[in-house]
Design a protein around this nucleic acid. Sequence first.
DNA 1: CGAAATATTTGTAATTAACAATAAAAGGGG
DNA 2: CCCCTTTTATTGTTAATTACAAATATTTCG
Lengths: 239, 239
Amino acid sequence: MSGKNTDKDLIQTVEQSAMNAITIDCVIFGFDNGILEVLLVQHAEGISKGKWGLPGGWINKKESTDDAAHRLLAELTGMDNIYLEQLKAFGEPDRFPLRRVITIGYYALVKREDYNIKAGFTASDAKWYKINEIPDLIYDHNEILAYSIKNLRHRVRQAPVGFNLLPEKFTLLQLMHLYEEILGVEMDKSNFRRKILHMKLLVPLDEKQQDVSHRAAQLYKFDPEIYEKLTQKGFNFEF
Amino acid sequence: MSGKNTDKDLIQTVEQSAMNAITIDCVIFGFDNGILEVLLVQHAEGISKGKWGLPGGWINKKESTDDAAHRLLAELTGMDNIYLEQLKAFGEPDRFPLRRVITIGYYALVKREDYNIKAGFTASDAKWYKINEIPDLIYDHNEILAYSIKNLRHRVRQAPVGFNLLPEKFTLLQLMHLYEEILGVEMDKSNFRRKILHMKLLVPLDEKQQDVSHRAAQLYKFDPEIYEKLTQKGFNFEF
DNA sequence: CGAAATATTTGTAATTAACAATAAAAGGGG
DNA sequence: CCCCTTTTATTGTTAATTACAAATATTTCG
């Protein structure tokens, strides 16, 4: 949880309309130039002034935790329809210094192209950090972040969620590099190609990479409907 | 969450010493006679009198959510050192009828032999239900249970957690049947054997099955220390 | 001792992954 | 316009894994 007001302000504001023992914190992943990054926000005031942390906030009394996470995400990034999933609740009794607050961790996968368009101006105190250059964060946010990466590594191998980090149209090598970066491994080009094409999950477009000074790569897109159909036939995405 | 008092009693009792917007609910898995089961408890009074639900309760102000889950589990089963993991938080605004309460779901894996010894007497209103004979449960407990099964299926394939459901000493066939039951698939005996033995994870004992009217199977045990060493060498448990 | 039951091993074809090499585009410079 | 560089894309070959089938080994019981 974090924000621009002092922590006490927040608590007072919140007690009328929101639950006061639970917050939401969200790890927002982006993939830019082959690098996995997360979006952090800076605490303007309060106990942890100047320190960076995960974006987050309170849950309104009438909304689900999922809805709250979506709302907070929209407030920060200006984006709607973001891929979002809950991690788990973090409940050490002293994780928040002022009083007992349990937080529910979420993680989001965003396309950087969309973010640059929609959020460039709103998030003035937000900044993308490379996954292995994360500073010391407020509260237990380093722990939440570490957990989210572990979770993402599992998730990306079991379900086609990685596409949420790529542009609408992408090359197979881009996709492979995404996997390599997230999983921290090197992969074999030809086998990767054989395997992913064999799934018949990707739609090849009538379009190629532009403005590259070498052979242009075929562009593909991911079609959720095709994935649905395959799944119903017993197909199981797995890397 | 559930208990023997009325819901209102519980809420009043709790407001002094515990957090009142968050509960814990726990799916307890057991494996008996080749069948995967969960332990449910019956609501004695309150709105949902007579209905079955997951065991659960409140979180004390000074304990972590993990500690709370362990405490609740010990209270119900008399068992300590139970394998326990958090699922996630369930936060639909109307999941609990009286007021807004978010619950954190956990799941536990217990050895039935231990349970029978230690808990036989305390848990009078508790009962094991086969996984595909689950009745209509209170609140959103069917949803939590369904989620826990999905989670267990994933988890059991990625880490050696299944052993927590088996006796200390087990045969390879027992282990395979455990996997078959949890994953809902049929497996190949010889390949299963080749694969698990090849991991060099199990310790063959100087002991065989007793009192069977056919060739007695070799008994094995799982050694967490060996698993640790293998993991450090880069080994990755996977089924 | 032989029958019944299950444990355990062995073998072989089909898939999949690891590794290596080659052919096919695309732009840039002479 | 042709050659060079770079990267995409295809093809092959071997090793490891999985699917499927069969034979062999123990054990109790009648």
